[in-house]
Design a protein around this nucleic acid. Structure first.
Length: 493
RNA sequence: CGGGGUGUAGCGUAGCCCGGUAUCGCGCCACAUUUGGGAUGUGGAGGUCGUAGGUUCGAAUCCUGCCACCCCGACCA
């Protein structure tokens, strides 16, 4: 393996691709467009899952599992929904193979054609609502708050590890409510859950916003989202939460008896985040030395590297290292002691930097003598010598991890602030987009035509209408027509 | 799915124009010396040249199909 990653400044996308592979996160598989998530990458995903799952449960949701396959007829029940996904669906047409007569291997048995073709789920609204029809009769059955962790398939033409793959892992929440307001509140709540997760755990500041009609989920009346800024100035949609209105209830005839004795269609929501978050995590914080992981999502938070000559020294360092490990574990810190004799310290340092381990402790004979250790931070690449008598190592590392978590967030926040520019003329818009990138806060006349036109001219799309924007009369950046507030434009992943 | 490019050992590559059985570096294995930022020396193993055909006495090299990956578009989370 050659040393050193490509530089972000020279080729950002190559840097990303290399980093994903070199840090052992994922690799391409034998199947076109599909990735293998390697153990190290998967353990980060598991940490994300664990937190999100906890948050979903705290907000009253429970997990369930619905089938991978969807009868073709289901997909066509909601008109805009089909339109949104039809172009990227994998279809199962047969259920059996047989040996080819010429001995060339197995072939699809033409006798085994399915009566009705099955679609590999691109998302599960349709199967789920067809099921909800049986689960919901009365207002007493509502709200229904279900989540599922699953894989989905969207047949993408151009794929990139984590960011866009033909098969990906995600979670999809599907809820049913008695009133529009309740469903809208749920939509908002889950968007906020995502935002909180991104900021608190991924150390990723996000813009909470609303999608324009163009960017909305197929089948939704309203889509809320969180948008993040990557280091190359491109935006990344990190999570979406949809208010489905009564669209799926109508398509699948899901009615309930109201308290007042009437009969009404149920109001729905759906919301999801995917392994794409891994891409966001990587691109938001990492540097030319490798991954930078926020402590709250790092599979290993602290690694201890012994520096020694001969068995004897390793022995005495190990004793001390194990004491430290015990202390750290008492504090709930995940720590690894790398006493492999097969690699030298320098090699290990580089390796753990590549893999983004937040804190590295090095301990050698000099430290043993002085009662010190060397503590190195991954995020800042700084080192300090820490005297073990100074304070408890558990306290020290706990607060350091917290500081790193905050510092990574602040850095990303500051970057995003710098990369958000208010622009007030078309020339300025084009100039900033081209020379600087990032979010462009600009007035827009509210029409899809203008949005399309801007996309066509510049490749920038409206990432969202920020929820906290101030009402401010202005003129559309392109048409000069009146606008009531600014929206965020950006080139996006 | 359109346009361009690349595919040679685990990884990165030379060779291809001009056909004669494959170069170098990293990694791997063994031993020795090493160990506070990717160690050094000596010896060694490892290749259906993406894949399937074709041309030829002979193909990594020329021709055709297919596959994969990368870049740029269209589409999308």
């Amino acid at each position: 393996m050659s040393k050193g990653l490509p530089k972000r400044s020279e080729d950002y996308s190559q840097w990303y691709n290399e980093l994903v592979k070199r840090a052992d996160l994922a690799e391409n598989s034998a199947v076109r467009g599909c990735m293998v998530i390697k153990p190290y990458g998967y353990s980060i995903w598991e940490k994300m899952q664990a937190e999100l799952d906890r948050m979903f449960k705290e907000t009253g949701h429970t997990n369930a599992y619905f089938p991978l396959f969807i009868p073709k007829s289901f997909l066509s029940k909601e008109a805009s929904h089909v339109e949104g996904f039809a172009k990227e669906c994998a279809v199962v047409t047969h259920y059996r193979l047989k040996n080819a007569e010429d001995g060339s291997g197995v072939i699809v048995d033409p006798e085994a054609k399915l009566e009705e073709e099955l679609i590999v789920r691109p998302t599960s609204e349709t199967v789920i609502w067809s099921t909800y029809k049986n689960w919901i009769q009365s207002y007493r059955d509502l709200p229904l708050l279900v989540n599922q962790w699953a894989n989905v398939v969207r047949w993408e033409m151009r794929t990139r590890l984590f960011l866009r793959t033909a098969e990906f892992l995600w979670q999809e929440g599907h809820t049913a409510h008695a009133t529009a307001k309740e469903a809208m509140d749920e939509t908002m709540q889950m968007m906020n859950v995502y935002a909180q997760f991104a900021e608190e755990f991924m150390a990723l500041p996000v813009v909470r916003g609303r999608k324009t009609a163009n960017e909305r989920f197929a089948g939704a009346d309203d889509t809320l989202c969180i948008e993040a800024m990557m280091q190359d100035g491109k935006a990344l949609q990190a999570g979406t939460s949809h208010f489905l209105g009564q669209n799926f209830a109508k398509a699948f005839d899901v009615k309930f008896a109201t308290k007042e004795g009437g009969l009404d269609f149920v109001w729905g929501t759906s919301w999801g985040v995917s392994t794409r978050l891994m891409g966001a995590l990587i691109m938001a914080h990492s540097d030319d030395n490798g991954l930078v992981l926020p402590p709250k999502l790092a599979p290993t938070q602290v690694v201890i590297v012994p520096i020694y000559r001969g068995e004897g020294e390793l022995e005495s360092i190990s004793v001390k290292a194990k004491e430290i490990m015990t202390e750290l574990r008492k504090k709930g810190i995940s720590v690894k002691f790398d006493d492999r004799d097969t690699h030298k310290p320098g090699w290990k340092f580089a390796e753990y930097e590549l893999k983004g381990v937040p804190v590295r402790i090095a301990m050698g004979p000099r430290d043993l003598e002085n009662g010190t250790i060397e503590i190195a931070r991954r995020d800042t690449l700084t080192k300090e010598t820490f005297s073990l008598s100074e304070m408890s190592i558990g306290e020290k590392i706990s607060s350091l991890l917290e500081e790193i978590q905050n510092s990574i967030y602040s850095k990303a926040f500051q970057f995003r602030t710098e990369m958000t520019t208010e622009v007030n003329s078309w020339d300025e818009f084009k100039k900033v987009l081209e020379e600087k990138g990032g979010f462009l806060s600009a007035h827009w006349d509210g029409t899809s035509e203008t949005e399309e036109k801007i996309k066509e001219l510049t490749k920038a799309t409206i990432r969202c209408i920020p929820l906290d924007r101030k009402e401010e009369a202005g003129k559309c950046i392109l048409t000069g027509n009146p606008s009531v507030g600014r929206v965020y434009f950006a080139k996006a992943y």
